[in-house]
Design a protein around this nucleic acid. Structure first.
Lengths: 348, 348
DNA sequence: CAGTCGGTTGCAAAGGTTTGCAGCCGAAGA
DNA sequence: TCTTCGGCTGCAAACCTTTGCAACCGACTG
């Protein structure tokens, strides 16, 4: 039903190649012809078929962005930043949500593969080897994970976790819990490693609870367990869990930060709205989004896909930068000095 | 670089059509041949090029979902529901965000047009005529707006607004403000119409403030104005604005619901977390997402695009259902009886 | 033995573009 | 008058698949 280039050609009495050029290289066609073609196109409601165009140019001017959970407020700023950056470069962003499911994730990469010029894999739950494999089908930039040989942009949650633990140590806490993130999360592993080291270094005992769903519900579900464990402070995988935990504790009658201190990660907008305001590790999400887009676009301007074998040096895409972005501890109201012992805890 | 069907054919010593059938109609190819072809394909890392496939089948098995602001917690449940429904039907969903910008919106429809089998336009800011126009390029289902001749799924915010106003009237409020939504929003117009009528019917005075950005910031920015206007109750375009307003008022020393009552719309998860918990009009977002996907898929199973002119009755897509989903007022803690006059307000 | 049939495969057209190359035309230069 | 050249346009191949049609094979039927 929709008009094709052929219809326009027929209507305006020129060859299809002229119509094509009218749209993709207007300076090559006579102004008179051009207006005539444009008029006919307008008339027929013609729009170049981007799939067909992509087939031959190897360029869709779209990029895919795959996230673990679009409902997590952590992602929107990243998405927005990526979109903004992409728009500057005349690209569009298609977002897809995996529901924290590694299988859906792989599925989506394949679904997007030929509809986009590259994919941003944000907080992937797939295995590294799978990521490597799909990256042979479509250019990939990985966010929030380190994969050898692939371009990555990471946030230094290790340093963030360390800062958080040190903050808690300074407040006198010696029994600390870590609310682990979801299975398959690189961030979760990094946090665990760093937090464990920092706690040991400070003579504290760190209990790891998890893996868990990195959601509010996931956090509140742990309240009981946290309470029983007798810790006086908690570092949560992310703000959502921290907030959930605080509510859960509240429901159990434990007050934050009076009875137990809680630190989150991400610094989502919401963390400034809750009572108490959340102490958290701020991650540079917007910068990550921008950087990732730049790296992706750089990547496939180096290696034009589908183009008829340019002789030049393709294949050596070992220029794979790996960028580590800094994090920062933001102290607000959900952390405080360790409570005097013996009052309530199951310990002592 | 990535292997094509031809490479696989060469490697396994069969014609490309056999390779094609191995993937798209396995029962038509000899099991022995099949395993050989599959082995070769696996070996070369071959994946059918979905763009090329779509070009000829006219089916991508993707659907596009365009939303006004992905950072608004109103959307994720809708997105998730749409994804779930799509997955059941063996479809994938690509989401795009317009930043409340009508131009970006049109842009995105075109960008998606040939990469998806249809588009869900959620809370569009475009004009009706533009929507009608793009709907000639790609099948469209409109959410949160009524467009003649197009399939639409709407939420009855008119009824919701009426219920909210009546709730406020019952609490004794007679001076009420409506925080208007963004320009171009059908929902905003419906609310305004219904709220105005309901207020008039109840002998109350309704002040309309706006249009505004439908965000928390948009809400808090209006606090001063609301205060000056001397109203005792406010109906906000959505929960985000309501929450922003409550904060803004708080900063100015007005307490909710003691000094002023606030009602939101959407019933986002956050509205249960704030203090006070928000009275709001719950909208059936998940149902809307599911319904819209069903309607879209129905739509283009009726009218197969790109297929070589099936003789049957195409063209009569005037089966365009329009669905109106019910809303429901949820009374929580942000509304209360009108304060005794003369204490603080600028009135009296 | 001719004909039929089911199962498998090859052939080639089709889908809508882009693009290198060649050709055309008229004007400028020699 | 003959080249040369620039500006514009047409031709056809290419991108990667899918799919209707025809051909083939062996076996069975009558």
């Amino acid at each position: 039903m929709p008009a094709t280039i052929r219809d326009v050609a027929r209507a305006s009495g020129v060859h299809i190649s002229t119509v094509s050029r009218t749209f993709s290289a207007p300076h090559l066609v006579n102004p008179e012809t051009r207006v005539r073609v444009l008029a006919c196109a307008e008339d027929l409601g013609y729009r170049p078929n981007r799939a067909a165009r992509a087939l031959i140019t190897g360029r869709t001017h779209n990029i895919g962005l795959i996230v673990a959970d679009i409902a997590n407020p952590f992602f929107p700023p990243l998405i927005k930043a990526a979109e903004g950056q992409a728009r500057h470069r005349d690209y569009h962003v298609f977002v897809a949500d995996t529901n924290e499911d590694p299988v859906a994730e792989e599925d989506l990469v394949h679904a997007m593969a030929k509809q986009v010029d590259g994919v941003l894999l944000c907080s992937p739950r797939m295995s590294n080897s799978l990521i490597e494999q799909v990256s042979r089908e479509v250019p990939v930039v990985v966010i929030n994970r380190q994969v050898a040989g692939l371009p990555c942009v990471m946030m230094d949650v290790g340093q963030g976790a360390r800062a958080a633990i040190e903050h808690l140590l300074a407040l006198g806490h010696r029994r600390i819990a870590l609310l682990g993130g979801p299975r398959g999360s690189w961030t979760a592993r990094e946090m665990r490693r760093a937090a464990t080291a920092a706690a040991r270094g400070g003579g504290a005992e760190l209990t790891v609870l998890g893996p868990n769903q990195p959601t509010e519900t996931g956090g509140s579900a742990l309240a009981e367990q946290v309470r029983r464990s007798g810790v006086t402070a908690v570092l949560a995988y992310n703000d959502l869990m921290a907030i959930g935990l605080i509510e859960g504790l509240d429901a159990l009658g434990s007050r934050v930060p009076h009875d137990v201190s809680v630190v989150g990660v991400d610094d989502i907008a919401l963390s400034r709205l809750t009572r108490p305001k959340l102490t958290t590790v701020a991650t540079p999400t917007a910068a990550a989004g921008r950087t990732a887009v730049d790296m992706l676009l750089q990547l496939d301007s180096d290696a034009p896909r589908g183009a008829r074998g340019r002789g030049a040096a393709t294949g050596d895409r070992r220029t794979t930068a790996q960028v580590m972005l800094q994090t920062e501890l933001v102290v607000r109201d959900s952390t405080g000095p360790v409570p005097a012992p013996g009052r309530d805890g199951t310990g002592a």
